[in-house]
Write a protein that binds this DNA or RNA. Structure first.
Lengths: 141, 141
DNA sequence: TAGTATATAAGAATAATTCTAACTTGAGAA
DNA sequence: TTCTCAAGTTAGAATTATTCTTATATACTA
């Protein structure tokens, strides 16, 4: 049966396996490009013309609560979905606005668990700059 | 004369030294708490009842373009103003939502200028967790 | 001090996200 | 398999942050 593992995921977190939710999860599996909720909506609309933005937001919110996805805030007013929850960094191109996953383990061993008396749950490292394509396009930015 | 240095800043970036702009800059000098535009507006309204949110946004945008302030996106839909442009990290408390500046120089010498063929302009490191006050309040979060 | 380019204020416009309420459906029980 | 209903979906309204528009006001140069 198709989508078996997706249905399993939904069962595990006690959500009904509706076609919309299955489509969203399948979409995220195939699209590791940090899509925005609106992008997910626009693309799924082709397959499910009646799908609602509220459903996209509801499902993403549930998946986020379960730690299955994360949300990145790199630009004002825009949230990007991160489906790869293994720890890694991000590079955000200031020109083309693309987000790249950076798998550097240079600092991995060095992650502190506290700073002062603060309890650290997670760490994010974000590089801002220009990706190779934009650098070679413009020469200098 | 009061506000002399603030006026100097405005002159340098070729902006008219209006009372509103002076008030915003003075406010930011005294409030290193990463305020939101709305918070700045609400507080300045007491002194300048007619001040407009658009003026806040316009001024912040100009100051940002000049590199005098920065903008942080740590929460969905909320931007915080960072007035301290010397490089440092941030700790965001998931409970009280406060932002703390973290001046760690552990990794300072190690900042790369490129990754692959990407050109790095700036780096941000953000810690998410629970601050000392919230940890001691709740015991466990 | 006058002239003018620039800035401000108020409110409309935009866009992301959340809420609401009525209808629909997945999935367990019979 | 069918029934039942809690949970989910949809459309559109509401909310909120931000930007835009335009008429009015003002800082600053000459």
């Amino acid at each position: 049966m198709k989508y078996n593992d997706t249905i399993k995921i939904l069962k595990e977190i006690k959500l009904k396996a509706t076609p919309q939710r299955i489509a969203i999860i399948e979409f995220l599996k195939e699209n590791r490009t940090h899509p925005t909720p609106r992008q997910i909506y626009d693309l799924l609309k082709k397959e499910y013309p009646s799908i609602s933005l509220a459903t996209i937001y509801n499902t993403l919110s549930a998946l986020k609560d379960e730690g299955i996805i994360e949300e990145l805030y790199l630009e004002k007013d825009i949230s990007h979905i991160e489906c790869n929850t293994t720890p890694h960094d991000h590079f955000f191109c200031l020109s083309c606005k693309k987000i790249f996953d950076i798998m550097e383990d240079k600092y991995k061993d060095d992650i502190p668990h506290t700073i002062k008396d603060f309890k650290i749950i997670s760490i994010r490292k974000e590089y801002f700059g220009y990706c190779d394509e934009c650098v070679s396009k413009e020469g200098e930015n």
